[in-house]
Design a protein around this nucleic acid. Sequence first.
DNA 1: CGTTTATTTAACTAATTGGTTAATTGCTAT
DNA 2: ATAGCAATTAACCAATTAGTTAAATAAACG
Lengths: 237, 237
Amino acid sequence: MVIYPIRCDGILFGGFEIIPIFEPLTKWLNISVSIMQTTNTTEQQIIEAARKIFMHKGFSGARMQDIADEAGINKAMLHYYYRSKDKLFDMVFTEAVGKLLSRVSAVFTADLLLEDKIQGVIGSYIGSIAENPYLPLFIMNEINQDPDRIIDRFVNTPSFPNIQEFMMLLKSEMDNGTIRRVDPIQLMISVVSMCVFPFVAKPLMQAVFKIGEPAFAQFIEERKAFVSSFVLSALRP
Amino acid sequence: MVIYPIRCDGILFGGFEIIPIFEPLTKWLNISVSIMQTTNTTEQQIIEAARKIFMHKGFSGARMQDIADEAGINKAMLHYYYRSKDKLFDMVFTEAVGKLLSRVSAVFTADLLLEDKIQGVIGSYIGSIAENPYLPLFIMNEINQDPDRIIDRFVNTPSFPNIQEFMMLLKSEMDNGTIRRVDPIQLMISVVSMCVFPFVAKPLMQAVFKIGEPAFAQFIEERKAFVSSFVLSALRP
DNA sequence: CGTTTATTTAACTAATTGGTTAATTGCTAT
DNA sequence: ATAGCAATTAACCAATTAGTTAAATAAACG
């Protein structure tokens, strides 16, 4: 009988070996460990390696051996710490989504004028993804493979942005006549589209417009201002 | 020594078994066969099954057995007709990309006023993808996995839209003052983003906004008009 | 120290997967 | 009909893969 590290069992093992009462503690441990990047423990090395491999190759394309090699450890260690490929994947996915959403959510709920809020959301959205450019495709991909498994974890993330409130803000500005009257859902999807899609389509874009790595970086930097002014311009009454 | 059907060898086997002089004929055969859906030959059944499975699961997620089952035939038949998983994939990919691009390209090069052209491109782009909703994610995905392998086939497709010409048109309208001055590349990426992204993000969107299948279809239908007016609105001087 | 506990490793297993083969069935022209 | 060729199948193979195990090493601790 092998004893697995506690930190793993709480969230992921569903309490079939460790009784559920431990869950909150281990869950908290888990989050804190994965947030503080300073410690370079084996677990953290594994998570980082797994993130890299999963992001590039997707779930089914990623090999446990690749992750082990990337982390510079034995393959059995992966299972020692995270039991199975699925569990390890969940770990990486949950952490990545959490990071992205919490950052955007902060601006989303901040107390700002609509114009500043739109600029802020666009800037932090593009900025966040620029730091983690493979994340969107990764998320879209895995959601399409098995929607039900993923979506709960995504939408029910504690840091999920408060959309309802933002839509109310839009509506009131339309009533005021400050902005043009448009379908708020169509608008929000458009903003997200313009922020996210360039990263998803990056290699294709580079080929079509024949731009290299630095030019792409510049394109992204300029894009924050472009999308902001484009959206605000489209919303002029 | 097994004799493989000619139609496969021309394009894909790179002439190491069949001499290159046959290529144009077989290529032409290939295209015509895959376009006319009327015939329900085994090869066509295979392609359709492969498209379905590849689109849903991606290259590494797709299993040859799944494709065989979907086509209702023996697994060995796949190899009999298309030699290997890679070759079969290339077949599906090339056909799918060709279909999409040729349709968009037609509107792209048509002789229309800018406003009509923008509306037309948006309409045909969204319409095309609505008929093949898994295509964008599929393309993005495979391009990210192995950019070099895919991109040539994509950009050098004979039906690839004439971007240069369109950019000139934009520039002249900006000089006229008919539309606001913006970076044409940023603009084009934005338009494509707004057309494509909703399909890529469909399951997530449905979860976040709690909309079902019919509501999503309606959203897409409305989106043609929304994106058109949104873009034209943003371009007002 | 010595014992106990946690970490790490190499070797192994069972299942899956892409691909092959050799034999069988179906079709077509003479 | 039947010889010859194309289409189809079941059984098989070799490589890969996630996951296991039991033994070895390092760390903690009395």
